[in-house]
């Protein structure tokens, strides 16, 4: 049950290096810029050294209780182990967005919205594999507009160190590409 964007409990999971943590952080930052309540809880430790990584990102109109939760409104999964682990934990009616080039066995659940997009291939077309996470974020925001695109772009400016600001345009293109891919799939936004 969605309650008009009052609360979004999201998990982002994948391999270390796929930009899982920065995806969640950018979203949290954008939420903060819109005066929402936010929390970002990363997995830390061995994951940071190259295994699997995940972060729980919560965006809410009200004060956030637990930063650690076990059931999610939405999940973004970027590898097979994360699909296997988190697909069962999406609330009925929720969204599961995944990278379809990496994940060969998506969940067979029918009570959630499953959307796969080949973000890695798209990133290769854009000649920068590192923007894969931004393509995914663009797709997610098209499905769940929890924050505005303007806030995401402003957040990127704050999250990215100044020496990487020349990469802002390609990040913006990646976000737009992700949005467009969802539009092409003709999936309705869930509000």
């Amino acid at each position: 049950m969605k309650n008009n964007n009052q609360l979004e409990e999201l998990i982002v999971a994948g391999f270390g290096g796929q930009g899982v943590l920065s995806l969640g952080m950018t979203l949290a930052y954008a939420g903060m810029l819109e005066n929402k309540e936010i929390s970002w809880m990363p997995s830390y430790g061995p994951e940071m050294r190259g295994g699997t990584a995940n972060c729980i990102t919560i965006i809410s109109a009200n004060k956030i209780s637990s930063p650690i939760i076990s059931l999610f409104d939405s999940a973004i999964v970027l590898n097979q182990p994360s699909m296997d682990k988190f697909a069962p934990r999406v609330k009925p009616g929720g969204i599961l967005l995944y990278e379809s080039g990496t994940i060969l066995k998506p969940s067979t659940r029918t009570d959630i919205e499953m959307i796969g997009i080949p973000a890695t291939t798209e990133a290769l077309k854009m000649k920068n594999t590192k923007v894969m996470n931004m393509i995914i974020l663009g797709a997610y925001l098209q499905l769940r507009p929890v924050v505005s695109n303007e806030s995401i772009l402003e957040a990127l400016q704050k999250v990215l160190p100044e020496k990487y600001h020349h990469l802002l345009p390609i990040n913006r293109q990646a976000l737009e590409r992700g949005e467009a891919m969802v539009v092409e799939l003709k999936v309705q936004p869930v509000s």
């Binding site: 952080m25 936010i38 929390s39 970002w40 809880m41 990363p42 830390y44 930063p67 650690i68």
Partner: peptide, 10 residues
């Protein structure tokens, strides 16, 4: 604790 130390909030 580790969670309050590692998590981000505003």
């Amino acid at each position: 604790d580790g969670a309050i130390g590692q998590m981000m909030e505003k």
